[in-house]
Write a protein that binds this DNA or RNA. Structure first.
Lengths: 195, 195
DNA sequence: TCATTATATAGGAATAGTCCTATATAGGAG
DNA sequence: CTCCTATATAGGACTATTCCTATATAATGA
């Protein structure tokens, strides 16, 4: 469960409350791992039960008491183990690809309209990515080294590369559809028989 | 729920049983939408309740009776509606990116070892993708037109482009890590202060 | 003064997906 | 003769995630 490790990762920087964690999520990894507030609290309880984090109550008079969580040696060990192991990188579920697969069941005009709308949304998203570094300056100011910052920005870099690749691909699909070029570029012996 | 639409999509080609659906999933979209057998049966029941598919029992003496499902006009309408609407394309959860984000917490040697193993696995995956067209020939033979086949192969094309993009990116990350080049290429005013 | 935002925690219901198991029969391999 | 595979369906338990709601108080802004 990735959320567990994300929480351990943040607590390995410094002790935080559930509320703090929600804020730090929303200013950093929410672009590729959105965490619901209630899920953070539930996961913190479970991590405490498993002895991977420990909790300290900081009393407050004006507001509800803060429950500040910090990582335990067992939690650190588990985090480092996870960080050292190779990742899958190939998502096992992609809803957009399912749509593409069945798109032969609707007319090309419908598909072209959809792809056009998707491309517009993606170009806007690219503009949003360009603004991210400015918007998270207060967060990046927390970085303790250039190296730490480097890894944080790698995630943004990947997001942009991934988006650009998708835009390029969709544009090439649009071109082929407009030209009614349905070739599969794969030696398919029945190609001549098919209408 | 994408699985619903995937089932509707297949039933829009021809009526199938739950068992047939599992087989057809495993020979086609399992690369980007794996479906558990028990989930298929549960979803078929729900689709029947919602009047999106209808069921017919085909009696058999040697084996348990087949329950053959076919799409209803309401189901077709829902499918076409879904196929016409733009897709998100940006996955909201990416476990590998969470790992990258926190990789500053382990030494570069650990990261390099992991990336190397990941790259090896990805190059093997690329070889697997190259074999797919041959392995699914009996499935592609079902295609009724070049156009239908075109959309099917688009999903493979995207898978390969996506993988190649990721490989290229990881290779560039490896190069930078080996050179200890931690620049973020983004105007960061504190760059000089950081160790 | 009234509404909104911020601080702070947490339970309940619903949805999605995985894993394991049960039932029933036929044919083929070793 | 037994084990495995294929055909065919489906329930139960569990995990992950989302959505909605409840509780409590202080500060800010219109």
């Amino acid at each position: 469960m990735t959320l567990e490790y994300a929480i351990l990762g943040f607590l390995n920087y410094e002790p935080l409350s559930g509320y703090d964690l929600k804020k730090v999520f929303d200013r950093s990894i929410k672009y590729f791992w959105h965490a619901d507030q209630s899920q953070i609290y539930k996961t913190l309880s479970r991590l405490t039960d498993e002895n991977l984090v420990k909790m300290e109550i900081h009393e407050q008079t004006d507001r509800p008491d803060r429950k500040v969580y910090s990582i335990t040696p067992a939690g650190q060990e588990k985090l480092y183990h996870w960080l050292a192991h190779p990742f899958p990188m190939q998502a096992s579920h992609s809803s957009p690809l399912v749509q593409i697969f069945f798109s032969g069941q609707v007319p090309d005009e419908t598909v072209l309209k959809k792809l056009d709308e998707t491309l517009t949304a993606m170009r806007q998203q690219m503009a949003v990515y360009d603004l991210v570094p400015d918007q998270i300056q207060d967060f990046t100011a927390m970085a303790k080294s250039k190296r730490e910052l480097f890894y944080w920005f790698l995630t943004l870099e990947f997001g942009k590369r991934n988006l650009q690749m998708t835009i390029d691909w969709l544009e090439s699909v649009v071109t082929r559809l407009k030209n009614k070029d349905y070739s599969t570029d794969i030696g398919f012996e029945k190609e001549i028989d098919l209408p």
